[in-house]
Design a protein around this nucleic acid. Structure first.
Lengths: 205, 205, 205, 205
DNA sequence: CATGAATGAGTCTTCATTCAT
DNA sequence: GATGAATGAAGACTCATTCAT
């Protein structure tokens, strides 16, 4: 059945995501993924070319998903600060939290030394998504987003002081909560305030 | 010879740092470290208990070094924004850049799922360093640093919007420079401006 | 449909022959055979018991085919050196060339260490074919073939200096042609002369 | 100790030769080699790069050894048919018999389809051995060897009707002896006579 | 201090074969 | 007849670590 096949494939993918997240890509074992997914180890190789290929698919899906929220926001004509925009941003942040596992993978893999472009850059670099970036930014600015006029400056500011703090927060949220003995809800508010005081504030010009 | 012995030990440590940084801890091989250090693999085990032990020592040294700059700054009575303070911060940032390798390790290891406190938290949590934090902050605020009054808020803001962007920038600087085709000097200036527009600005109240 | 079924079976067999020949029996993969034959892997197991069974069938067919030419020649009353005999021998040699793939398999499998009689011996040992060997030889000698009187001697001479050089030549012809930079037609003539100067000449007594 | 190391390496090599010969290269298992050699499997990889590398080393050694006899014969001024020459040829043949295992490997590997020159060609192609072939042949002919004047013809004749029958005989000798119920000593004599009647006879012009 | 040799316990991946439909 | 999915049993190769000298 097509049904079962798709489901099995997806199930393996999700299990892999979980195991990779728990132990890191390198330390994760294919045996473990098979066992936890309840399938034969060889079946994993029936659906995927290699361990690496699974990782890439996970990362790709994740990035496509995350960027989807931003692309969608550009499509709608939300004004900066509007409830709709805030809601959309909440969704974006939530997506990070809900996919903490893959986000962790994405960052970890991006940290590895290789000459390739680290995949995490795709969170700011829409070049390959076939979207007219310059035009989108102009449009957003018309709606009050106050992005830097200079492309390079804007990307640096958004990535390092906007996206990455959120990424890092998503990844350390629960550990921070445990270590500094503060419940996650309160912590979320602290982080939101930190963001407002620093990055968000900059968008008000 | 105590001298040679110390030197060899240190040499191994530095080589390990380099190799770990290049390939990540898990992917790094003891063989490679030995070869690059020009020593026999067994000798590494004469000086260190295990691969993991080398990692821990590297991270420990790094954190002690980084925090040293901050502790020193507290000791001096630099005013916020003073040339001396700026110089000290530059040194702090430089330290990150110069130890990109270990910093990468520190972040990667901190990202691993385990119940322990991730070591990177030590960059903001001075509790263990035997320094009276509350008193130091008060002192710094008197000099115009405008830290948040609330301890938890301050830590969150400093860590996620101050320290971590710098950490991440250090780790992706050269790759960003290559990918976005911008020289590292110019990039440094863009990042500094991003910081000023967001985190630094918040310290001005 | 009996027709289609037979055809599919034959098609699989031929594809297997090709793949076995290209990669050797051990290195050949059932997946590959299935893909190249354009059928599902499981279908191969519908027609054949195992990989080994395919091999055996191929070898059996080949041997039966090769010996057919010799048996036929005995049946006709060609004189040694007659055009008809030469033509028949040419067919025999051609058969080897055309089935280089299976011939390669036959030799490779025969080279494996096992206590069984290597299948390649069947090229000289007609015992099992239900033909009266002694009588056939006598008949051939009457026509001028000058076979050794001693059965053992004759078999050794025919196999090692008559058949095997031809077998080996068939298998290395194209590689020899490439390596020694000589076209296959010229090479064929050289080999024929080599044969005439050595083995054939011996038949003239 | 250098001693032990050399010995271990050699021991592994010999065990591999034996196992490869028994089961064929593809079917041979590294585990088996390790177990039979009484060493840890990883140790094999300490001394050799890969299974393939072991094979190549075995084949190389074998070819160098075999050709050594011929090269030596050229060096001495034995006349064709002289006792010394016969003795040297006997050694050459003996070498094949004694290294049946590797010879089997050499032929099996040479039979595999690949665009490379099959290693068995090195038994006739001295090009790479840094020996002046043309001159050597002239010298040998002066001593009565009656080699074909044409290089290509000579190589074809020597390889396919001289060397290869000997190779094949070495590999099938014991099986032939068993199958046709003839002791190996008698068989050797039959093969020698077959050779004299065909290939050797051609050297007498 | 230093090293060459050795090892135990994996690790990813492969493959012939079978099952369910 | 035919197929997509599934599996058990290996197999080559790796690697941190230790031993003997």
């Amino acid at each position: 059945m097509k049904r079962d096949s798709e489901a099995t494939r997806k199930h393996i993918l999700q299990t892999a995501e979980k195991v990779f997240a728990e132990q890191g890509f390198d330390a994760a074992r294919m045996d473990r993924i098979a066992r936890e997914a309840g399938v034969n180890k060889a079946l994993i190789y029936y659906y995927f070319d290699s361990k690496q290929a699974i990782l890439l698919e996970l990362i790709d899906n994740f990035i496509r998903g995350a960027n989807g929220f931003l692309i969608e926001m550009v499509g709608k004509d939300y004004a900066f600060g509007s409830d709709e925009m805030m809601e959309q941003m909440r969704k974006y942040n939530d997506y990070f939290m809900r996919h903490e596992a893959t986000l962790r993978l994405l960052l970890t893999e991006s940290l590895k030394d290789s000459d390739d472009t680290p995949p995490i850059f795709k969170l700011i670099d829409f070049t390959q998504e076939g979207m007219d970036e310059r035009q989108s930014i102009d449009e957003l600015n018309r709606r009050g987003f106050h992005f830097d006029a200079d492309d390079q400056q804007r990307k640096v500011t958004e990535f390092f002081t906007g996206i990455m703090p959120t990424v890092v927060y998503s990844l350390f949220r629960s550990k921070w909560s445990r270590h500094f003995k503060i419940d996650e809800g309160s912590l979320d508010r602290l982080f939101q305030k930190a963001n407002e005081d620093t990055h968000d504030q900059h968008h008000h010009g």
